[in-house]
Write a protein that binds this DNA or RNA. Structure first.
Length: 225
DNA sequence: AGCCAGGCTACCG
DNA sequence: CGGTAGCATGGC
């Protein structure tokens, strides 16, 4: 059993299934992996993925609820909406001028998909979608095996000595994907492991890696290396 | 009061 | 290329 997989098992045992990505009205659907269940929910995950950039998800939920209250969690209403009204709705998530543009850029792209699953490369060509947001959309919106790496992931792996602080996004992503893939052969289970791994990292990161010194109280150290 | 949050782009050397 | 300022609200 490799070390990264061991970390996954320890985190899962401690925190349990996380049920990402939360959907309005259902929240964290723990141990139910049949989400998103329709195009509206996929679209909601995409918007949430953009809105959550460098922001807490609590703020994202407020923004999404503001839109939902206007029946605007869909392409056509957002496009017709006055831009300042849209910005006001997403204000709680911060960077609302940037994010309003990013979302409109994404919608132009999304419409052209006609329900198809986008490729990672296509997503990366959309202004406002970087590697993490692309993987977030693919992993949680489209159930594609693309692990999402965030600041906590890197911070934790650096602290535990798996990578150095200059490690790039894809290096970390493939290290984790290859490690989990070596231990989990079933495709469906591997996808769920990707989804849960990132969610568990965030949960653990919020508890032990948000304040300096990073890693204080982290219980992973004695179990690995 | 200051730091951090489930990042990305633009621009610099 | 790698490094960094700017973006902005909300919670602790």
């Amino acid at each position: 059993m490799n070390e990264i997989y061991k970390i996954y098992k320890i985190l899962y045992k401690n925190y349990g299934p996380q049920g990402w990505w939360p959907i309005l009205g259902y929240g964290y659907h723990k141990q139910d992996y049949n989400f998103p269940r329709n195009h509206d929910e996929i679209f909601e995950v995409c918007l949430g993925s953009i809105l959550t950039q460098n922001t807490t998800f609590v703020s994202v939920i407020k923004s999404l609820e503001n839109l939902q209250a206007k029946n605007a969690l869909n392409v056509y209403t957002i496009e017709k909406m006055e831009i300042n009204e849209f910005k006001e709705a997403i204000k709680p998530s911060g960077y609302y001028n940037q994010k309003a543009r990013y979302i409109l850029e994404f919608i132009a792209f999304y419409k052209n998909l006609y329900g198809a699953t986008p490729t990672r490369e296509e997503l990366l060509n959309v202004i406002g979608i970087g590697e993490e947001t692309a993987d977030s959309i693919l992993l949680y919106g489209y159930n594609q095996p693309e692990l999402k790496v965030d600041a906590y992931t890197k911070r934790i792996l650096v602290h535990l000595g798996f990578v150095n602080d200059k490690a790039k996004y894809t290096e970390i992503k493939f290290l984790i994907q290859n490690s989990l893939g070596a231990s989990i052969k079933d495709k469906k289970k591997l996808l769920i492991a990707y989804q849960e791994f990132h969610a568990l990292i965030v949960e653990h990161g919020k508890k032990h890696y948000s304040k300096k010194p990073y890693g204080s109280g982290c219980f992973l150290n004695p179990h690995v290396k």
